[in-house]
């Protein structure tokens, strides 16, 4: 039997907007758990552009993606949110009534369930998933000859392995798997690698020593009767075609965003976005809110600052679901001692 966690709110997505929602909910005494498919907080800010400067966050003439995430974490620290990483929400089941919503939320990986009174979807562009290169019939080999991640290195022991890509994942797995596989080949489109310099050096030393092969070019097709992979054909950058025999291909082409299971939760969708009202940012399902890049409404702008505003307004309505009998008094953090107590800034 897996665990069931009871909480006020489940926030799906731990990007900047999901993080700030913790703050707005926290001021209203609402507890939350955050679930994210990535192994860390920050969403796109941390995954796509941690080093890039952002210039349109109010009050910050310039802040990097990671800098913003770090500051948000510090800001919500008083509310002690619980994070669940590397997990994707698979299903959302309404078990209450429209007036008193209650939901059972289930994750895909380990099947943890949550019971909560409201759900805030702050999933940005959807869940990050490995990019599948457009190779013909690649699906037919997935799980046998094609893997987008390495879960157990031992699976590849004594196999002929072809790694495709030139980033950190490709290079890290090249040097990590090389000692245990039968033969390792790295394929990249150009002779430049976007990875830690010492890992690149290590790879080059292995190539120089004849302990692995490096090809520059692109896979043109996969060979072997599916699901058994026997090799690939590569078009090299000089235009010549070579054949590489291999049992396994590991394409590391980065991550992309997919809406994923959200499409199956009974929510209205418009071009992969979730329509909401602009008073409460609630979806067509009472108790389910959508904030940040994943929602849509007339005039919507996909800006981080819009997501912050949306979270603040959604929190007001969430309060009515969590504390139906309490009247909500609107207060400012500058003057309210009760808010300051919650933030731990006053005795």
């Amino acid at each position: 039997m897996t665990d069931n966690i009871e909480t006020d709110v489940v926030i799906i997505g731990a990007g900047p907007v999901g993080l700030f929602a913790v703050f707005e909910l926290g001021l209203l005494d609402i507890k939350c758990h955050l679930i994210d498919i990535l192994p860390k907080v920050g969403g796109q800010c941390a995954e796509l552009y941690p080093e890039k400067p952002i210039y349109d966050i109010p009050g910050f003439p310039m802040v990097t993606g990671q800098g913003l995430v770090d500051n948000l974490l510090a800001q919500i620290e008083p509310f002690h949110p619980t994070f669940h990483f590397n997990e994707m929400v698979e299903s959302v089941e309404p078990i209450g009534t429209p007036e008193a919503p209650l939901f059972r939320v289930r994750t895909a990986e380990d099947g943890t369930t949550f019971t909560c009174k409201a759900i805030i979807i702050a999933a940005g562009g959807g869940s990050f998933q490995p990019k599948k290169p457009p190779m013909e019939n690649i699906e037919a080999y997935e799980g046998t000859g094609v893997f987008y991640a390495v879960r157990h290195m031992q699976m590849f022991r004594d196999k002929r392995v072809l790694i495709v890509g030139g980033g950190d994942s490709a290079l890290d797995w090249t040097v990590n798997l090389q000692p245990i596989v039968k033969r390792l080949t790295l394929l990249h489109r150009r002779d430049a690698f976007r990875a830690a310099p010492h890992t690149v050096e290590k790879m080059r030393a292995l190539v120089a020593g004849g302990d692995m092969d490096l090809h520059l070019g692109q896979v043109t097709h996969l060979k072997g009767k599916a699901p058994v992979l026997e090799g690939v054909e590569i078009k090299k950058d000089d235009g010549s075609i070579v054949s590489v025999d291999c049992d396994v291909v590991l394409p590391f082409f980065g991550l992309t965003m997919k809406l994923g299971p959200i499409a199956n939760w009974g929510l209205n969708l418009h071009e992969n976005l979730i329509p909401v009202d602009t008073e409460k940012f609630e979806t067509n399902v009472p108790g389910v809110f959508a904030i940040g890049d994943i929602n849509t409404y007339p005039g919507k702008l996909k800006l981080i600052l819009s997501g912050f505003h949306e979270g603040a307004l959604a929190a007001q309505k969430v309060h009515r679901y969590v504390y139906p009998d309490k009247k909500l008094l609107f207060q400012y953090t500058t003057s309210s001692t009760s808010l300051q107590k919650k933030l731990g800034v006053t005795a």
């Binding site: 290169p133 890509g165 980033g167 489109r189 150009r190 430049a192 976007r194 082409f253």
Partner: peptide, 11 residues
């Protein structure tokens, strides 16, 4: 741009 092109199959 070249770094991003590394994440797709290029011509």
């Amino acid at each position: 741009e070249e770094d991003q092109l590394d994440t797709v199959i290029t011509h």
